[in-house]
Design a protein around this nucleic acid. Structure first.
Length: 928
RNA sequence: GCUCGAGUGGUGGAAUUGGUAGACACGUUGGACUUAAAAUCCAAUGGGCAUUGCGCCCGUGCGGGUUCAAGUCCCGCCUCGAGUACCA
């Protein structure tokens, strides 16, 4: 008998489900609180112990907030579109929907076993037509909107057309592609197709020919954040740059707002910094350089306009439009060869060969507008076509890349900035350029002797005056490529007429994903949807065959949770006005440059079109750390089937082999199970130490091949969900990465049994009495209430667990079984260990779930001590302790300290120079 | 290279505002109970010196500094991790 967690946990999980304990609805009587987890992709391997870490934390917080009187929205769903299910479909022909459904059932079972307080009536799946209808709906809205830089928000395309009809596009300041200026009458004379082509340059969801990240292995393009070090994030396949016509979202229109919004959200600084870097704002100037003997000119972007006098050559990206026009005939062959070479270089090659300088002279010269000297124009792939204008003025004296290039090709290097107090140097003997912004200008005409910062503003005014440039701001952020050549994703609500895309009307949504025979691209290389029969509108127009990327469905899912069953709208205004935004969002930081940017963009767009009331979706965000695996090893003596224990392995020539952590307990191998683990170990022999086989261990990523995957189910089977919940929290700070190690779980399990024994005797009879509690018992309880409450509020869940342990240890020592103490204690612990808390609550004679009880509040009066044990230090070193009445006046404390028996030894023969007394803290006596 | 974060016992970690470093737990050792085991309970447990109690020295990656007082603040390094990668 005793703490029968199996029975208890099943019982309460059923109770919560049956009574819909955690179902929430709008309730104006209570303040709202929205706690969200990053919803999972339901993979085939199920949950491992790393997944629930954040879910447990958010569950504790949700339950706590509920106890505190909040109306808590705590939903869960599935990011159900994903590559693994589709790859599996390609291999086996199983529809991804079938695989996904199966995995979801498994996930749900595992989640239920942990006892989460999710409102499951709100479950959503991104692959459900009832859900993706609204993903498609938002896409149509984006398609029908443009970004007005003057009002700094998205507006409907109709307003743009009205302006076109009235005055053409010359007065429009929009975030757009390249558009020629036209007048109202020119607009009116255009064909529908011409008009549509122009509108496409303004749409926030637009089709364009762009340089994309093409992954041949996956047969699809990828967004920038899906490429890591030149390889696909999923699968690690090579990625190359390719020109393709693709759907994109004009997220760059929101660059500045995405940057500014970071200042008002409560997110980890590191995550904000990552987003700031990803957005990459830089201030500088664009300057036009004339080309010698040509009408053309080239615009460059620089963040150091002050160094323009040191610009001794110009470099264009190999893809730059003007190259063919300006290249002299004798250089043409070499230039084209270089362009071809650059084009065929993979992203990975380009990145790994950064140190190798390459380039080609075009034979043409530009005119430096401030020095009026001829400077050679080169092409090189260290200049990127996608950033700035794809052209730079090279200042080798003050830019390390330009310096390396100049050295390699013997181009002149001029110094234009000199560090304060230093003499100008001979650039011919420099090892590197002088890049810092500190110093004074030299060799620079009218800006000589100015500081760098002063020179920057002066040059900008000068070029503006000359009409050849202006101060500009550049962002590194690129528009998000939104189409994928895959099957398992949201279809675009788009059809083609006369080769131009048109949106479906809202009443035709959702456009459901059709059945296909094959999940592979067609023989002509079209996406899998081209395999679908009748993939046309009812009028016979062909439908788009690309599908949306993974981040489409996750960009606005938090909004749908507010009103998940709404058939007429994404969500009602009423629901959005009540739930507003996510108060607490918990998830991993791997989404920093992906989901968390797209989602903010999505939300800001919906804010602009008056669909949502908050312009930032996630008020507070916490990144839970990753749980690393802890592998165990056995050491096989080479050429034998003998295994030496860890301490003896160095006596032999051994090979370390990963061993399944499930047959190892506290690093001790279960040799019987090991022998049965695999056929090749059937005849294994062991060289033991102290009669045991000790395994080695190491911290690695959790993976099947390392046999170190810990799934929660087996731990729940052995110790119960409440132990798992407490243990995952006890492991360490939520935000920190930490190795998984079951070695400590026994302690938490012991604690729960100790807790149980405060309430029940050996035969599970309740032994709680109605006796009045004494001061010590009250103090112990209230100390715990104070500590646990403040710990939850600052998301310090690990120290909260120790506070429970301290309290239970104390009550155990006090032999306390009093209701006055133990009833509040049950509520106190219920967010962490809800099953045992419910069981205790019921045994105490309550009929309702503990989850709605008011959380106990500590009483400071009960925590007041009569004495404080002062640590007494001499010259900062602790020598003895002295108990004195609390709040004793300073001078009396001083006297007491000096006159204390133990003080004599330390004062002997010395003079007291100073005494520091911090009331109820420390006493420090300075002697000399 | 740049940006950010971290470094505390055998282990996970605690120390919230500069004020008793190592809470809580694991592990280890010794003991009680038991025919035995499990479970439970008690004691010790940073290192060193000393030991009849007392007691002293050292100690939060390294080297300096500020302060009556530094794991915490400042300066300079080292190591590890994450992000990013020719962004002009």
């Amino acid at each position: 008998m005793g703490y029968e967690f199996h029975t208890i946990e099943k019982k309460w999980q059923k109770y919560w489900a049956k009574n819909q304990t955690f179902k929430v609805a709008i309730n104006y009587e209570k303040p709202k609180f929205y706690v969200l987890d990053m919803f999972p992709y339901p993979s085939g391997s199920g949950l491992h112990v790393g997944h629930p870490l954040g879910y447990i934390a958010s569950d504790i917080y949700s339950r706590f907030k509920r106890h505190k009187g909040f109306n808590v929205l705590h939903p869960m769903g599935y990011d159900a579109y994903g590559l693994p299910a589709e790859q599996y479909a390609i291999q086996t022909g199983t529809h991804p929907e079938v695989t996904t459904e199966k995995n979801i059932i498994r996930y749900r079972e595992q989640l239920d076993n942990i006892g989460f307080s999710f409102d499951w009536t709100r479950e959503i799946r991104t692959s459900d037509p009832a859900y993706y209808k609204w993903t498609q709906w938002t896409f149509i809205k984006l398609f029908g909107s443009w970004y007005n830089n003057t009002t700094d928000k998205a507006e409907s395309l109709e307003s743009l057309i009205d302006v076109f009809l009235e005055s053409g596009n010359s007065k429009i300041d929009a975030a757009s592609g390249d558009v020629e200026t036209f007048s109202a009458s020119e607009w009116k004379r255009m064909s529908e197709k011409q008009q549509q082509e122009i509108l496409m340059s303004y749409r926030l969801a637009f089709l364009s020919e762009t340089m994309v990240n093409w992954c041949a292995e996956l047969g699809t393009v990828l967004a920038n954040d899906e490429v890591k070090e030149g390889l696909s994030e999923r699968g690690g396949y090579p990625v190359e740059k390719k020109h393709m016509k693709q759907w994109s979202l004009r997220i760059t229109a929101y660059s500045q707002r995405l940057l500014d919004g970071l200042n008002k959200v409560d997110w980890p600084e590191s995550l904000k910094e990552m987003q700031r870097n990803w957005i990459g704002r830089s201030e500088g100037a664009s300057v036009l350089f004339d080309i010698h003997d040509s009408k053309n000119n080239i615009e460059v972007f620089t963040t150091r306009p002050d160094t323009i006098f040191g610009a001794t050559f110009m470099v264009l990206a190999p893809e730059h439009d003007l190259i063919s026009e300006i290249t002299s005939s004798d250089k043409l062959e070499a230039v084209e060869k270089y362009q071809l070479w650059a084009k065929h270089r993979s992203e990975r090659e380009r990145m790994t060969e950064v140190k190798n300088v390459s380039g080609e002279f075009t034979g043409s010269y530009a005119i430096n507008p401030l020095t009026n000297t001829k400077i050679p124009i080169w092409i090189a792939d260290y200049v990127l076509s996608g950033y700035g204008t794809g052209a730079i003025m090279a200042v080798p004296g003050h830019d390390s890349r330009d310096f390396a290039f100049a050295r390699h090709f013997n181009l002149p290097i001029t110094q234009v900035v000199v560090n304060l107090g230093e003499e100008p140097g001979d650039t011919a003997i420099w090892d590197d350029s002088y890049d810092t912004k500190e110093g004074l200008m030299i060799n620079s005409g009218f800006i000589n002797d100015m500081s760098v910062n002063k020179a920057i503003t002066s040059v900008i005014s000068k070029i503006e005056e000359m009409g050849i440039g202006k101060g500009t701001i550049n962002f590194r952020l690129r528009d998000a490529i939104f189409s994928r050549q895959r099957y398992w994703g949201e279809p675009f609500p788009i059809y083609y007429k006369d080769d131009m895309p048109y949106p479906l009307s809202e009443d035709q949504l959702p456009l459901e994903l059709p059945k296909v025979e094959s999940y592979l691209p067609t023989s002509e290389g079209k996406p899998p949807l081209a395999n679908a029969k009748n993939w046309v509108t009812k009028d016979g127009y062909p439908l788009e065959t690309n599908t949306m990327p993974g981040f489409a469905g996750s960009s606005g899912y938090y909004l749908r949770f507010m009103d998940p069953e709404n058939k007429n709208e994404y969500f009602s205004k009423k629901a959005n006005d009540y739930w507003k935004d996510v108060d607490l969002y918990i998830g991993g930081d791997e989404h920093a440059a992906g989901h968390l940017i797209y989602s903010r963009f999505w939300n800001k767009f919906l804010f602009d079109i008056n669909r949502v009331c908050e312009d930032e979706p996630y008020r507070k965000l916490i990144n839970q750390g990753k749980i690393q695996g802890r592998s165990n090893f056995v050491y096989r003596i080479q050429g034998t089937n003998k295994f030496a224990s860890f301490g003896l392995k160095n006596d032999y020539e051994t090979t370390a082999l990963h061993v399944d952590i499930n047959i190892v307990n506290n690093d001790i191998l279960n040799t019987e199970e090991f022998v049965n683990w695999r056929p090749e170990f059937k005849d294994a022999e062991f060289i033991l130490e102290d009669g045991k086989y000790i395994c080695g261990h190491d911290i690695e990523k959790m993976s099947k091949s390392k046999h170190n995957v810990q799934n929660p189910d087996s731990l729940i089977e052995k110790y119960g969900a409440d132990t798992l919940r407490l243990y995952e929290m006890f492991l360490g700070p939520l935000e920190q990465d930490k190795p998984w190690d079951t070695n400590g779980i026994e302690g938490v399990f012991r604690f729960l049994r100790k807790l149980w024994r405060l309430y029940f005797d050996e035969i599970d009879t309740i032994i709680v009495t109605s006796e009045k509690a004494n001061d010590n018992e009250l103090k112990s309880l209230h100390k715990a209430i104070k500590k646990v409450t403040s710990d939850i509020e600052r998301f310090s869940f690990n120290t909260g667990v120790s506070a429970f342990m301290i309290c239970v240890n104390e009550l155990n020592d006090l032999n306390c079984h009093k209701k006055e103490i133990l009833e509040p204690l049950a509520i106190l612990i219920s967010p962490y260990a809800p099953h045992i808390a419910e069981e205790i609550w019921q045994s105490l004679g309550n009929n309702e779930s503990i989850s709605e009880e008011h959380y106990p509040i500590h009483d400071d009066k009960l925590l007041v001590e009569n004495n404080f044990e002062y640590p007494v230090s001499f010259n900062g070193k602790l020598r003895f302790k002295l108990a004195l009445p609390i709040n004793m006046p300073k001078d009396e404390v001083e006297k007491a300290a000096i006159n204390a028996e133990e003080a004599k030894k330390w004062l002997d023969g010395k003079t007291i120079k100073k005494i520091i007394v911090v009331p109820n803290r420390i006493i420090n006596i300075v002697v000399g």
